[in-house]
Design a protein around this nucleic acid. Structure first.
Lengths: 191, 191
DNA sequence: GGTTGCCTGCCTATGTATAGGTAGGTATGG
DNA sequence: CCATACCTACCTATACATAGGCAGGCAACC
């Protein structure tokens, strides 16, 4: 495989900084210094910061979707959900937020296009989890009350939110507890 | 009552901007313009932005604690929790995040003192809710499995997180659904 | 096979606006 | 007199961005 292009390295660094510090807390200068190039060269690859943000969220969503697709193949609904939560747990352990969760915090300062991508990220995630929950309930693999959509939404909120509080509490491993709680919550009662 | 001091008006404006845009997305200039004074006058009240951040989070926590104290008086655990969730629902409806949730997103960029306050906010909230859950379970007013501390943490994460996704989805009223879900979740099964 | 010409990726240099902060002065009122 | 609360004026650093140049690759063409 070819070594990474500068563009990809810029996106890697921007993603790290956005997830650890926030979109408004890193600059083209910070990116340039990390790659040991000049800020003008960063502008060559991404004319404006809005362009960078858009590329960032699009790449993130693509990778996220492909992770979710891998999670979706084959196994039980319960396993899918466990693996899905693991995606977030891994992020938290490396002291990162979900990129779109981080961007949601800065939502009002984002370009319309980036706002749209973040909105779509949540809609897509909620729809995916809703599907898994509904299918799992039909198959008797998971149990919960009420509409799958409502549970899907609160569980995704829970993941985004516990990443926040885990960070503030200096407990990057706390998502393990969230995972256990969710799996217990969804457990089918043994009669 | 006396008309508000400039200091309080500055804190009001900073709180609004922090909750709607993020701590790193507003400036002394923005505060000064909102109050129609000069930036140097803002520095008179808050020498540095870290000082402002500290005053902001301390005042927020005080008010939050007093709201929680009001919620805590008298009624059932279930009612307390419902009223507690309403605090967040009101914020979301006015297009604001929880201040400490917002600050948690920018956590790495905050001064040590502000980080400490944010950490303490989460610890205090989790402890309070844990107590209400535990007492409620003992009194037979609410029902849930496992440790109260674990449920307390995930529910607070859920509140913080659904505020984020509600904003990104353009659905500031969605916290109503979160409230309903939580109350259903805690409902004591009727035999 | 040299030369022409374009493309990529980086550079220097520069510009405008903002961010956070400081020094020192002034008006007002107990 | 002195504290409060505001001001003018200024500073340095940064943020984002643009213009224009240059080196190397590579492909076409005679």
């Amino acid at each position: 495989m070819a070594t990474k292009t500068t563009k990809d390295r810029l996106l890697d660094e921007a993603e790290l900084l956005c997830q650890t510090r926030g979109f408004n807390a890193f600059s083209f200068k910070a990116l340039a210094e990390a790659l040991e190039i000049k800020t003008a060269s960063v502008h060559y690859h991404f004319p404006t910061k809005a362009d960078l943000g858009l590329a960032l969220v699009q790449r993130y969503r693509e990778r996220f979707e492909s992770q979710v697709a891998r999670v979706s193949s084959g196994r039980s609904s319960r396993d899918r959900i466990a693996s899905y939560v693991d995606i977030f747990a891994r992020l938290a352990r490396s002291h990162r937020l979900c990129l779109c969760g981080s961007l949601a915090g800065d939502f009002a300062t984002l370009s319309d296009e980036v706002q749209g991508e973040v909105r779509d990220y949540f809609a897509a995630s909620e729809a995916w989890l809703e599907g898994v929950l509904e299918a799992g309930r039909t198959a008797g693999e998971v149990s919960f009350q009420g509409e799958a959509r409502a549970t899907s939404r609160v569980l995704i909120g829970m993941l985004e939110g516990t990443m926040l509080s885990a960070r503030a509490s200096g407990s990057p491993n706390r998502l393990r507890d969230t995972k256990r709680w969710i799996l217990d919550f969804l457990a089918v009662p043994t009669p």
